[in-house]
Amino acid sequence: MVPNVQLMPDDGDPFYNPERYLRVVGKLNYLTMTRPDIAYAVSVVSQFTSAPTIKHWAALEHILCYLKKAPGLGILYNSQGHTRIECFSDADWVGSKFDRRSTTVYCVFFGGNLVAWKSKKQSVVSRSSAESEYRAMAQAT
């Protein structure tokens, strides 16, 4: 995603081919299984599948350009010499200016290899950054 760009539901002119937008977003959603580096960006553009605009399509093209320039970035599993389970979580407080909800992100490693990850908007509006971080930690646990 382009840093500091907030996509909104009514961001300009409607995209001329919403079915194409929906197909590309669906394919990218499938690709996030092996490319977690695009999971957040895909979750953002997938929020606008009902009424995409030209600005939303531009953000989608930005993801496709990134994928074209970074073809070797995928998940690779190998032995790290241990079998510890590690989990990392984060939240962006009021990440969405549209509905004021935070986004929870976490990833779980087993033996140094990524086995689970998630990026999802929280179901409620948090009153503080500590509350949104606590919700992210509880979700990850």
Score class of each variant (00 low, 15 high):
Arg100His: 07
Ile38Ser: 00
Asp37Ala: 12
Ser132Ile: 11
Leu28Asn: 02
Arg20Glu: 10
Pro52Arg: 06
Leu60Ser: 07
Ser119His: 04
Lys27Asn: 12
Val94Asn: 13
Thr49Tyr: 02
Thr104Asn: 05
Thr103Glu: 00
Asn113Met: 09
Ser79Tyr: 11
Tyr134Val: 07
Phe48Trp: 01
Asp37Arg: 13
Thr104Arg: 03
Leu114His: 07
Asp90Ser: 15
Val115Ala: 00
Met1Ile: 11
Val25Glu: 03
Ala39Glu: 05
Asp90Val: 11
Ser119Lys: 00
Arg84Ser: 11
Asp90Pro: 13
Leu28Asp: 02
Thr49Gln: 14
Thr104Gln: 03
Leu60Asn: 09
Val5Glu: 06
Met8Gly: 08
Ser102Gly: 04
Tyr16Glu: 13
Met33Leu: 11
Lys121Pro: 09
Ser119Val: 10
Arg101Gln: 03
Tyr134Asn: 04
Ala59Cys: 15
Met33Arg: 10
Leu60Tyr: 09
Pro18Asp: 02
Ala41Lys: 05
Ser50Lys: 02
Thr34Val: 04
Thr103Ser: 04
Leu73Val: 14
Val42Leu: 05
Tyr134Phe: 14
Pro71Gly: 04
Lys68Pro: 05
Glu61Asp: 11
Arg135Met: 14
Thr49Lys: 10
Asn4Pro: 06
Ser50Ala: 07
Val24Ser: 03
Lys97Ala: 14
Ser96Ala: 04
His56Asp: 03
Trp117Asn: 02
Gln6Ser: 08
Ser119Leu: 01
Arg35Phe: 00
Ser129Gln: 09
Gly112Phe: 12
Tyr30Asn: 01
Ser128His: 06
Ala116Trp: 05
Pro18Trp: 03
Ser79Trp: 09
His62Ile: 09
His62Trp: 12
Leu22Tyr: 08
Arg100Gln: 06
Asn4Trp: 05
Ser132Glu: 09
Thr34Trp: 00
Lys69Tyr: 12
Asp92Met: 10
Gly112His: 08
Met1Cys: 11
Gly12Trp: 04
Asp10His: 13
Ala138Trp: 08
Val2Arg: 12
Lys97Cys: 13
Glu133Gly: 06
Trp93His: 07
Ser96Trp: 03
Met137Leu: 14
Pro3Phe: 00
Asn29Glu: 03
Ile75Val: 15
Val5Trp: 03
Gly72Val: 04
Pro52Ser: 04
Glu61Lys: 10
Thr32Met: 11
Ser123Arg: 15
Pro9Arg: 01
Thr104Leu: 02
Lys120Met: 11
Leu114Met: 13
Tyr134Asp: 05
Leu73His: 13
Asn78His: 15
Ala136Asn: 04
Gly74Asn: 03
Asn113Arg: 07
Leu7Tyr: 04
Thr83Asn: 14
Phe88Pro: 06
Val2Asp: 15
Phe48Ile: 00
Gln47Thr: 01
Leu67Trp: 08
Cys87Leu: 09
Ser128Asp: 01
Lys118Asn: 14
Ala136Ser: 13
Ala39Ser: 09
Cys87Met: 06
Ala91Cys: 07
Lys55His: 13
Tyr30Trp: 06
Val2Glu: 15
Asp99Asn: 15
Met8Thr: 10
Asp90Glu: 07
Ile38Gln: 03
Pro36Gln: 04
